[in-house]
Design a binder for these strands. Structure first.
Lengths: 199, 199, 199, 199
DNA sequence: TATGAATGAGGGTTCATTCAT
DNA sequence: CATGAATGAACCCTCATTCAT
């Protein structure tokens, strides 16, 4: 019988969803565990059956949400048959930006929290069964062009930070321009960055 | 004699310094006013003689510190006689990066808090007697080249966000490379970005 | 078994009793919530599980205590079979005065706080399940004599205020005379007031 | 030279006036000494040059204000040539009620605070040079009729409390009737009370 | 598992009072 | 006399965490 299991999962998911909504709406510091359990319609004590603390649920959320986002982009890319590294990266970036533009709450959450530290850990750390295998993916992608790219990690880092930083305001507030206005410039800049790293 | 005035200034500065240290070390949310007054060696009530709340002292700090940082960079630049826009911007960026590399606490504080929203407001808002006149400066700098730059605001925005985002980890953690390793790539990328905006 | 319910009721009553004692002893303004929880032998936070603020517990106390006092007097009166309005009112007043003389703490609390505004609201407001139904009672009592009384509300008001004001010092301090010395004069005066309102 | 003296008195009066305004507007407990000095446009420390505490200025105000009120009523009465005790008392009461109706702030202040305890002390205590001589006056007034009045103090007490209690709501809120509607009933009741005390 | 009553440390803030100027 | 900066105790209230049910 799966009923008990489902019920358990249901409580946990209620908590995760409630936490996500509240973290994006008020930030982690202004969100209390009472808030979360109240929104999840679950007793206060129940929280501690699934998570150790506010920060525990927080990191699990980042992991889960970013894994989902990158996974989808990767799957979409694999369907296309892109040859050059430039094309691949631009495709991934574009796919992610579009996803985030459609889901600003996710953007708000990811953008503030998806630090390079996290990214790095995901790429180099032990692959996690729950989450997307960044490591495997990026190694494959870059290997093909590894020979021609000087300091590939710096390149990736620069692009990730640039995209993250510029898109945040553009999508959420249209500042200093809408994301559609920004995109051509941004993609031109990304291409320049990749080219700057070619030996 | 200005004994009283000096004493007051001293208390205010103690509070500002304590707040700065704590904000960079623990973040604003985890810093309590008790923490601040304790570190400033001042009674709790004294805090409220100078600031309305934690957020009041916070905004005053951002304003003050960023004003100082940009002001110094600007003064240094004016001593050099640089002709091209590329040279000017690279000079400013380099000056600021060097300053921040020497003062990681300042970097930590500025980087997390100096949003584009703030920058924009400083550039377009009413000039403040206390703080550096961003507006006057950037208008002058860009005016000379305005005709040849497409969407100068997007260009500036992109550069500011790129520098801010990439330097943060590089300086503080040497990730994914030290700032000195990063610099040549970064400056090449900035030059590309500027060039991409030239008509 | 109702163990949990009983425990909760016990805590709530501890708080109500402690608050009552302190309000009569020091007044509401000089009573802190710390005082109340300390006297109730309950943690500070517990207070907020039952009451929203100091004023919340205060109004609930007034409501409760006055309801009890008037309810008892009414019940006693109904056992007697008094015919005239004068007799009824004197009986009620006497019963209440005796009760308050036996319980000076209650007098102290009620007398300071049972304003006409409150009385009026109790008489005209929506009947509350928890508290005594003033409305039903006084309407019944006065209806029988309504035809013969000019301005019954003014009459009632005058009597309530007179009794309240004169008994306070008499009972608590024997000033300017003990309540027993005062009574015959007071009841003669009340009879005169009622008669003055007869058409 | 009177300048220094005037200035001193000026500060003291500013404080008294500010305190009076604030006490009537917010009550003594919700009024802080900062409030008072701020409204009086005087430095905080100056308060302590003239008064020992919030309660000190409070009692001085009651003394002063009630003295003024009763003094005026007495002076007015002496101009009339009233013979009976009933006429005298009704005249005094009417004069005071009219004064208070014209000055609701004074009513608010006096009514809440002019307890019988205070009245008693004023009547029996040592005459104060600053304030009206209640003692001398009431002894004279009652002496003439002393022989014919049983328990004159109880009578006075009853009237004072009745007037105080009934007029407060009537003047300030028109509840349960305006003061003008109430007056005929009240004066009839007062006459009854006096008559009830005649041997 | 699931609950929610209970806790008490710690948060921000106010304010009577003092004292060097 | 007059000032107002400085103090720190005490205020109300929130909340993460525990635990008996």
């Amino acid at each position: 019988m799966h009923k008990l299991y489902d019920k358990k999962q249901h409580k946990k998911n209620s908590l995760l969803n409630a936490a996500f909504d509240l973290f994006t709406a008020k930030g982690i510091e202004k969100t209390s565990i009472s808030d979360i359990t109240l929104n999840a319609k679950v007793a206060k004590g129940t929280f501690y059956l699934y998570f150790k603390s506010k920060y525990d649920i927080y990191y699990k959320l980042i992991s889960h949400k970013s894994s989902e986002l990158f996974g989808k982009a990767t799957q979409a890319m694999e369907k296309e048959h892109l040859r050059s590294l430039n094309e691949k990266i631009i495709f991934l970036v574009d796919h992610i930006i579009n996803e985030l533009a459609r889901n600003p709450k996710l953007l708000k959450f990811i953008s503030k929290n998806l630090s390079w530290a996290f990214f790095k850990e995901a790429v180099t750390g032990t692959p996690d069964s729950d989450n997307f295998d960044f490591q495997g993916f990026y190694l494959t992608m870059l290997k093909e062009d590894a020979a021609t790219i000087e300091e590939p990690e710096i390149m990736l880092y620069t692009i990730v930070e640039l995209v993250n930083a510029t898109c945040h305001n553009a999508i959420l507030y249209g500042e200093p321009a809408t994301i559609d206005t920004l995109k051509p410039f941004l993609y031109r800049d990304i291409n320049s960055i990749i080219d700057n790293h070619k030996v």
